[in-house]
Amino acid sequence: MKKAFVPLLLLTAAMFAYAPVIIAHADYESTMGLVQKVMYFHAPSGMVMLISAVVCGVASAMYLWRKNPSADRVAIAAAELTALFGLIVLVTGPLWARKAWGVWWVWEARLTMSFVGWLIAVGYLFVRKYGGPGSDKLGAALAVFGTANVPFIYVSVNIWRTMHPMTTVVPTLQAGMRGAFWFSALTLFMLYGLLLTARIHLERQRAALDELYLAEEN
């Protein structure tokens, strides 16, 4: 991964630079027009947020029961990225909703769920930052609970009427939009992978530095 990092970074940067072109050339949605193009970053960010939350939950479980310190580094990196991509979803969503539905926010299933998920991720980061000694285990337990909670939040909020398009909309996208959508999605997935790798690396360096300090003191 170390050798591939810089080329992949350059490739992702190039893809980001090209993304506006391909998005501009994609077909216009018939009723929403230009504003629908928010989708190309909004929906993939939502996907990344969900993937990242699952990564964080699994890594936390591994840390909690196997006491594997590298799993903890993955967990904190994934939690930060869940919060980051969640923020992108929560900012781009209302921008789109204002034009498409006429309101900034509605309290329906998917929106409520993203908001709650984002709050849990931010709560995790707060625990890690302000929790004091033992906050790593506390955070891990929180992440495990948060991940186990996702299906319940999904079921309970989904029983209310859903206004947001279902996930089934993605495979049924028109041919003129599909290419741009998956291009944007791939770009964001690569960005996620790179950020995660960089963040885990930083955490590993930090742990190594702490060890050196301890050795020096002894």
């Binding site: 409520t112 709650v116 709050l119 849990i120 709560g123 707060f126 625990v127 302000y130 929790g131 004091g132 000694p133 033992g134 906050s135 506390l138 929180l142 609970f145 948060g146 909670n149 319940f152 939040i153 079921v155 309970s156 909020v157």
Partner: peptide, 19 residues
Amino acid sequence: RARTRDVMLPILLYPMTVP
């Protein structure tokens, strides 16, 4: 054992008990 427990408890508990 956390110093910030008074504020952390509701912050963690409310999103978790939403369902």
